[in-house]
Write a protein that binds this DNA or RNA. Structure first.
Lengths: 215, 215
DNA sequence: GTCTATAAAAAGATAGAC
DNA sequence: GTCTATCTTTTTATAGAC
């Protein structure tokens, strides 16, 4: 992030453009199958010039992961601090997650497929941040059980069902067609909340409260 | 499958062993990031000997995809022909899908991540077979709506929810620990069927019928 | 800031000795 | 049936001219 001293203001702009390009190519062909030369060609730079902007190929992968995790964890933190019921928070978190998936679909492909190619500290740090996000989901699901919205079931398995449903969306979704993040979130949560519910679940009341936080 | 004439009976056995090894390595490091030399080293053969058994690296990928799709489509065909309600069939198909995921976890990693690296006809054929499986799921979900088990909703989105829930399981499941395919299938279907249901959904009655087909 | 040239290693695949 | 040697291409990354 911090740009090395001695570079002009255009440096960081071009750097971000290179990461954009890398994310696009990695998502299409996979990280390992994409060459540095190909990134250079696409962005219009020879290899030598490219390395003026990037540290290494792996570093590009790190930055792509951060572009996914940064907004996700920021949103999770804000939602946790709201004065709302856990089901409303889950519905808001669901929509944020799907929004990130819609807005950075190519990044998500790389995020889901190539994170295991990170090495050493890069891998460790990234896995810890992923866990952080999962912990937020878990705490909200447990709160929903404690407050009687959901049946008491194994929290781990409930987290995984919630995440399965959302995190596989990147495989087939086409932003701009048919459905948007809000609609998918409403649909997923309707299915999940009813399935998790203890008796019945007033979906309309949840949506009404969600709207007050989004206006 | 058909072994070239002029080879002994050990030929096919070793060939299958090589595919096993490739699936393991591809699942750990990714298809593109795994070298032919590495496969040879792991299986105990030099490159020259390895190519005595395989046609090309891509061909290994094709065979791994087939090892997933063959049992999946065979099971789907059998289940479709059963004399049972669509929800029972869905529950049986769910368990078969999860069974394949449990039994061939390394294959599933490759199946989910690296299928896009297939080229030409290999890619076309494989995508068609995937579609075939999805069509079976869709027809069962539509039948469940028509017969009043589920609310009438967009069939495409219902298929995708069903598949999201199941197909993301490979990311975190550890066979032999905690849960097995049957338990996960019961849990997923309980959530999904209740969420999809038109009014209420007699989960116990479904499980009782499922048991009659599995004894 | 961008280029060409080059290094140094590794890739997939083949030929031919044994 | 397995090996070594080789071919050809490509890889990530650097050096140094402009």
């Amino acid at each position: 992030m911090a740009r090395p001293p001695g570079h002009g203001p255009g440096y960081e702009i071009k750097r971000q453009e290179i990461i954009d390009t890398a994310a696009m190519l990695f998502s299409e062909k996979g990280y390992a199958a994409t060459g540095i030369t190909e990134i250079g060609d696409t962005v219009g730079l020879a290899k030598g010039a490219l390395y003026y902007y990037i540290k290494s190929k792996e570093n590009l992968l790190v930055e792509i992961q951060e572009r996914v995790l940064d907004p996700l964890l920021a949103a999770a933190g804000k939602i946790q601090d709201l004065d709302a019921s856990p089901v409303v928070k889950l519905r808001l978190l669901s929509e944020e997650l799907l929004t990130v998936i819609f807005e950075r679909l190519d990044h998500i492909w790389v995020y889901e497929h190539d994170y295991r190619q990170l090495t050493g500290d890069n891998l460790t740090r990234m896995l810890a941040r992923r866990q952080e996000f999962e912990n937020v989901v878990r705490s909200l699901l447990v709160a929903a059980m404690d407050e009687g919205f959901f049946r008491k079931t194994n929290p781990s398995l409930t987290v995984l069902q919630f995440l399965n449903m959302h995190n596989h969306t990147y495989q087939w979704v086409r932003p701009g067609q048919q459905w948007d993040a809000k609609f998918l979130s409403k649909t997923y949560c309707a299915t999940l909340f009813t399935g998790f519910a203890d008796g019945s679940c007033d979906l309309e009341a949840i949506e009404a409260q969600v709207a007050t936080f989004q206006s």
